[in-house]
Design a binder for these strands. Structure first.
Length: 938
RNA sequence: GGCCAAGUGGCGGAAUGGCAGACGCACUCGACUCAAAAUCGAGCACCUAACAGUGUGUGGGUUCGAGUCCCACCUUGGCCA
């Protein structure tokens, strides 16, 4: 048999699996327990697969294959999240329809994914841009549109069940419709949005990073626009509480909790004082939200956001000009710029005053852009003594400050403050002071008392607030799902009947943004206007965001071809929830939150039968480039001469993040080869946990960086497959370290696992011959006791490790097995066969080929997973460490079944132990077979 | 600044509170070869000639026994501000 040649083996088995539909999931479970194992489906970008993709895909594939062999009815699908900006930008540049580019990219992704031998059921492939798919995305949108949230029942209900006041009913169907609009879970609203002129679209808050677009880094400005929103805030509490029982990592749950940002506090009403000259009629008030109502006595001024609707009403004539120019300036800033802590605070006095409701003090009202319209009520009471931003603002504008929570002594000492003269805001809890009836109460008690007081006097109410905002659902783009609605002349919204779905995109020749917040669809004049029963309607020119298609794709996989429903109810009942969902941590918040939200709406409306879609979630860690040694710029410049003398060069590396300092990457010039290589071992030493270059002594950090084109450290999976084969790529990606850890790539490491597969190959075959021939050591004989022990321990360890996704240690165990048997002249078939089954989920092509070489004629994909016998995993004699006062002094070899007394006797009798005890009194003996013995002497 | 992870050989990493460094990479030596590659064998934390001793970011603590548990600090990464 020839030597191990993945280029020959792998395409053959991929063809075999495809032809025989080996991994098709039949609808009939045949009584097997179900297991739905899902990858986060990729956006098929033009640059193709990244080595990060196969990491998650290999993990799920190993588990899918493992579960099949363990008798599960496995669902393991793959598809494409194919709407999105890059394809559209390509279309803008080339005039080519985005679907063409998308289709090419999908074909390339599919080819790459298939070349890795994953056991997907390709008959279930879905594509979010396929009208047969987005028909149901539109259908779900309409379902959400036709739902309102009942706060009493705490669930989404059909809009037809919304109670309509009688006087509205009397005014007829149009009035009812108007009444319903603001209750719908999908609704339209005018609000300031992040308009990105460069991309020609508005962006969701979460797509804006540091005041720039997440994609492309273009500037973003604020502009009011009428937009579709999804009322995800109605579900905030359920999205929060339903996290608890899920089998997700605590850190991801915490990120979701932070994003939802539940806080408990109070809304407080401040009356606005009449002005002289009067600018407003009396009776005006402003409501603020605060999480610290206990500090109300310390509120010495108020701040409204520049966009607050009362600003224009209360501003006095002499302040009008200053206020107006401030409003204009802040409109140009992003939320991030406005809330940045480090920055100097800005603001303008409105000339108006309010009354502090608890002590009747007259306090000035300012506007400042550190207060956002989108959080709370868009206005705050400022308590400069106990809030950092208020403190800075008060210092800036010389506003008064009253301490109402007594700081603890340590804090006063650390900050150099006195109770009456704070040098910083004291934000911790403490005992109330200067606060009337609250004095002497701790923060929790003070909160309770003041809220009771406010409610009793109708000055305020207890209020739970969420940081989570409603989800901006419109995009001014072409390449997304069209909204299945019509707009009437008086701006009424008419949903399309379900029979009209899918509403497809019009053919266009020009995909450029219009330059106004109208999307490119505004140019599709034929498509845009629709006449029904003699009335002319206009279609929506916005499209849905990319998140829409990915919110529910896991449901479509369950019944991907169904023309009558998004999926058959019985099938949904069988497969949901997803048992294991693996993907990148970059989707830890948004995709999962949006997806959970849609799922809950569908659950409330009776279309799915479990409240949460993803039972277990694992985030694979990012794969970085190969590691390199870095040193600081100062050290490099200082030692440049000496470095040149020892043939070391440095390259300046500027990090992408602006706040990170640049470093030099050091390389050693290999005299013989004339190339620059990583610093060799002998030039490096460690001291006190730090790494140094030996001469000249410079502190080094070994670090790996994100793969990026600009650094030139991107690994293309195609190249790895070509060089070492898919099985080696799969094995290496799993062998690198724990699935969830961030870890650097190493091409040498791929060679390592490639050599392992070569050893497995030679363990079983005779590679000196040209034709298929088993290695003469592989014999049909009874395995001896030790061979059985190695096998059964391997079965146990590989099975247990695979089950808990500890793939790296499972692979190490298979390597140990191979290291043992390649040294043996007798390799019993009865041991080799189960081993191949253990290897199969990890390196399926090689395992299938060798399985066939052992004489099998069918795939091993459904062979039962080998069972281990606990009795056979144990050796006759075991080694036990003996400690004296906790320090290892000897190792005893004793029979496996030894008891504590026997072990103690053996330890006391051992010569080395006697020497270590040195005649001292043995005060205590801890003997724990089969672990250790410890003699306490003194 | 807050919250959450994580710091173990030259590198990736392993280790239910019980022999630290499994497995792999790199490196060194040897076998095979005219030679190289591949392969096979041996070695490989530090200190030491050896015995011994020291070692899991730093400093304390709990325990018969700590990489593992607790406290403080330092560093790195992630998320939030």
């Amino acid at each position: 048999m020839p030597s191990y040649n993945p280029a020959d083996i792998e395409p053959r088995w991929q063809q075999f699996w495809e032809t025989n539909k080996t991994f098709r999931t039949e609808d009939d479970s045949e009584g097997k327990p179900k297991y739905y194992i899902l990858d986060m489906f990729p956006y098929p970008s033009g640059s193709g697969l990244h080595v990060g993709h196969p990491e998650g895909y290999t993990a799920t594939d190993i588990l899918a294959r493992f579960k099949r062999m363990n008798g599960f009815h496995v669902l393991h699908p793959m598809g494409w999240d194919a709407f999105g900006l890059p394809a559209e930008q390509h279309a803008v540049q080339t005039g080519e329809h985005p679907s063409t580019n998308t289709k090419n990219n999908i074909d390339n992704f599919r080819r790459q994914i298939k070349s890795l031998g994953f056991s997907y059921d390709w008959d279930r492939e879905v594509d979010t841009t396929d009208p047969a798919y987005f028909r149901w995305t539109q259908w779900i949108f309409l379902t959400i549109y036709e739902t309102w949230y009942d706060p009493i029942q705490k669930k989404g209900r059909p809009i037809s069940e919304l109670p309509i006041p009688e006087e509205v009913q009397l005014r007829g169907p149009d009035a009812v419709r108007k009444y319903q609009e603001p209750y719908r879970l999908a609704y339209r609203n005018e609000q300031p949005v992040n308009w990105c002129p460069e991309l020609g679209t508005v962006l969701a808050n979460e797509e804006v990073i540091d005041g720039k677009s997440e994609r492309g880094g273009y500037p973003v400005v604020r502009q009011p626009l009428t937009q579709w929103l999804m009322r995800i805030t109605a579900y905030a509490d359920r999205l929060l509480s339903d996290l608890d029982p899920l089998d997700w990592s605590e850190s991801i749950k915490q990120m979701q909790r932070n994003w939802i940002g539940k806080s408990e506090g109070a809304e407080v009403v401040f009356d606005i004082l009449g002005q002289s000259p009067p600018v407003a009629s009396g009776g005006l008030s402003v409501t603020v939200y605060t999480t610290r109502p206990d500090t109300l006595y310390g509120a010495t001024y108020m701040v409204l956001s520049p966009e607050h609707r009362l600003v224009d009403v209360i501003t006095t004539p002499d302040q009008r000009e200053a206020v107006r120019s401030y409003q204009e300036a802040s409109a140009r800033k992003s939320d991030f710029d406005r809330t940045e802590l480090a920055k100097k605070k800005t603001g303008v006095f409105t000339g108006a005053y309010a009354v502090n409701p608890v002590n009747c003090e007259r306090i000035p009202i300012w506007i400042a852009d550190y207060v956002l319209t989108s959080y709370g009520t868009g206005a705050i009471m400022a308590v400069p003594a106990h809030d950092e931003r208020d403190f800075e603002f008060a210092k800036q504008f010389a506003l008064p400050l009253v301490t109402v929570v007594t700081p603890n002594a340590k804090w006063l000492k650390d900050t150099g403050s006195t109770v009456d003269n704070l040098t910083a805001a004291y934000t911790d809890d403490g005992v109330a002071m200067n606060s009337g009836d609250l004095n002497g109460l701790d923060t929790t008690a003070a909160k309770e008392k003041i809220i009771a007081h406010l409610e009793a006097n109708q000055l305020g109410t207890r209020k739970i607030n969420y940081k989570l905002r409603d989800w901006l659902f419109s995009r001014q783009r072409y390449w997304g799902e069209p909204f299945p609605v019509l707009h009437g002349a008086d701006d009424t919204v008419i949903p399309l009947p379900v029979s009209d779905l899918p509403l497809t995109l019009p053919e266009m020749t020009d995909y450029k943004p219009t330059g106004s917040p109208d999307g490119p669809l505004a140019k599709a004049t034929d498509w845009l206007t629709v006449t029904r029963d003699g009335v002319t309607y206009r279609r929506e020119t916005n499209t849905m965001p990319q998140w829409a298609g990915s919110c529910w794709y896991f449901l479509r996989f369950i019944d991907p071809k169904n023309p009558h429903a998004f999926a058959d109810p019985a099938k949904l009942k069988h497969w949901l929830p997803v048992d294991l969902y693996i993907g990148g941590a970059e989707h830890a918040v948004l995709h999962l939150l949006y997806s959970r939200f849609w799922h809950k709406v569908l659950f409330d409306r009776g279309y799915v039968y479990c409240p949460e879609p993803f039972q277990k979630l694992v985030n694979q860690g990012m794969i970085l480039g190969e590691y390199e040694y870095h040193c600081s710029v100062a050290d490099f410049e200082k030692h440049q001469q000496s470095l040149v003398a020892v043939e070391i060069t440095g390259t300046l590396r500027k990090p992408e993040e602006e706040d990170k300092v640049p470093t030099y990457v050091l390389k050693f010039r290999d005299e013989a080869a004339g190339v620059f290589v990583d610093l060799p071992d002998e030039k490096i030493f460690k001291e006190k946990g730090k790494t140094y270059l030996a001469s000249p002594k410079i502190e080094l950090t070994a670090k790996a960086e994100k793969m990026s084109k600009s650094r030139g450290n991107v690994i293309n999976p195609d190249d790895v497959v070509k060089e070492y084969g898919a099985d080696s790529l799969r094995l290496f990606e799993m062998f690198m370290g724990p699935l969830e850890a961030v870890k650097p790539w190493s091409t040498k490491g791929v060679e390592g696992v490639y050599r392992f597969l070569g050893r497995v190959w030679r363990m079983l075959t005779d590679d000196a011959t040209d034709t298929l021939k088993l290695n003469p050591s592989v014999k049909d004989v009874e395995p001896d006791k030790e061979a059985l022990r190695v096998l059964h321990r391997t079965i146990q360890k590989v099975g247990e490790d695979t089950e808990r996704l500890s793939f790296n240690t499972a692979i190490a165990t298979m390597m140990e097995f191979t290291n043992y048997f390649t040294k043996q002249d007798v390799r019993p078939k009865a041991v080799m066969e189960p081993f191949l089954l253990l290897l199969a989920p990890y390196a399926p092509h090689a395992a299938e080929e060798l399985w066939a070489a052992l004489g099998h004629t069918t795939t091993l994909a459904y062979e039962p997973w080998p069972k281990f016998d606990p009795a056979l995993t144990k050796a006759d004699s075991i080694e036990i460490p003996v400690q004296v006062n906790g320090k290892l002094k000897a190792v005893l070899t004793v029979p496996a079944g030894i008891d504590a007394a026997g072990l103690e006797a053996a330890a006391r009798a051992d010569a080395k132990v006697i020497e270590a005890v040195g005649g001292k009194t043995i005060k205590k003996v801890i003997a724990k077979p089969p672990q250790m013995v410890n003699l306490v002497v003194g």
